[in-house]
């Protein structure tokens, strides 16, 4: 669905720009982009006004998660300077009316859902923490692959990372090592390795969101509880970070299967009893 019609004057975003912003919005429980998950049904662009239509895997997905995705999508699209207003249309959800009204009228969650038990913030924090842990697995995995050992990895600080090293493509065009590169300095002896920047950047994004970049500890990587890692516990922490990723992708499989069956052509009809 493209309603893109007014891109010549430079006062409207392109479809690609909008999708690039939406790609930054994740399903918070799965830590995966809503574009990749195919939740975005389509966008409409009319000058500086953008509409985004979204359907989630089930009609009963957590209202708090739906709220987070809808508000994040709105805010990401509005971060484009040419966009004046983004409107979200959540479809086929049991609380679509409350969510669409709340998000588009910019109400706080508690006002859109007066009966809800709590606010969205602690839910978001809990899921950001889980995403941080899973992303740490990828980041430390990349460093292990580059030849660092556990002791070196647990000692790394933010200032040991240089993220904007010029892309030094490995030339094979397979995407692995063809993107941005990062230089990682190991304290003990001035050794530097150059690795793919993406897993480190992805990790830093969630480390920042969970307050681990500016807290009292300089160490970059942490236990799931947020503490610096004792070198003798490095393996255990690796196993726990692996587990966090398996949990997320496992839940992703559940959502995906529910989504598929909901949209299967021959799905037996549900009762018409209203609810």
């Amino acid at each position: 669905m493209s309603m893109e019609s007014d891109t010549d004057g430079g006062d409207a975003p392109t479809e690609a720009q909008v999708y690039e912003r939406l790609d930054r919005v994740t399903d918070p429980e799965l830590d995966t982009s809503i574009v990749e998950l195919e939740y975005v049904d389509g966008i409409g662009i009319d000058g500086g006004a953008v509409e985004v239509a979204v359907t989630l895997p089930t009609a009963w997905c957590s209202p708090a998660f739906a709220w987070m995705m809808a508000t994040d999508a709105r805010d990401e699209v509005e971060a484009l300077s040419v966009v004046d207003r983004a409107t979200i249309e959540l479809r086929e959800h049991m609380h679509e009316d409350e969510i669409n009204r709340g998000v588009n009228e910019r109400l706080p969650f508690g006002e859109a859902f007066p009966d809800a038990d709590g606010s969205v913030a602690p839910v978001r924090t809990e899921l950001d923490e889980k995403a941080r842990i899973a992303r740490q697995h990828d980041a430390t995995g990349a460093l292990l692959d580059a030849g660092l050992d556990g002791e070196q990895i647990v000692a790394l600080t933010r200032s040991d990372l240089e993220l904007d090293v010029e892309a030094a493509s490995d030339g094979d065009g397979d995407g692995d090592g063809d993107g941005g590169r990062a230089r990682v300095w190991c304290r003990d002896g001035g050794l530097a390795v150059v690795v793919d920047a993406a897993p480190l950047e992805r990790y830093l994004e969630k480390a920042r969101a969970t307050g681990l970049v500016d807290d009292d500890h300089p160490e970059l990587f942490r236990t799931p509880e947020g503490e610096p890692i004792d070198p003798s516990r490095f393996e255990t922490v690796r196993h726990r970070t692996r587990l966090a990723g398996v949990n997320m992708s496992g839940q992703g499989s559940v959502c995906d299967a529910l989504h598929e069956s909901r949209h299967a052509e021959d799905r037996p009809p549900l009762s018409t009893r209203s609810d």
Partner: peptide, 10 residues
């Protein structure tokens, strides 16, 4: 524990 397999295993 799904979707909290991680918390459960730990």
């Amino acid at each position: 524990g799904l979707p909290r397999l991680d918390d459960f295993c730990w």
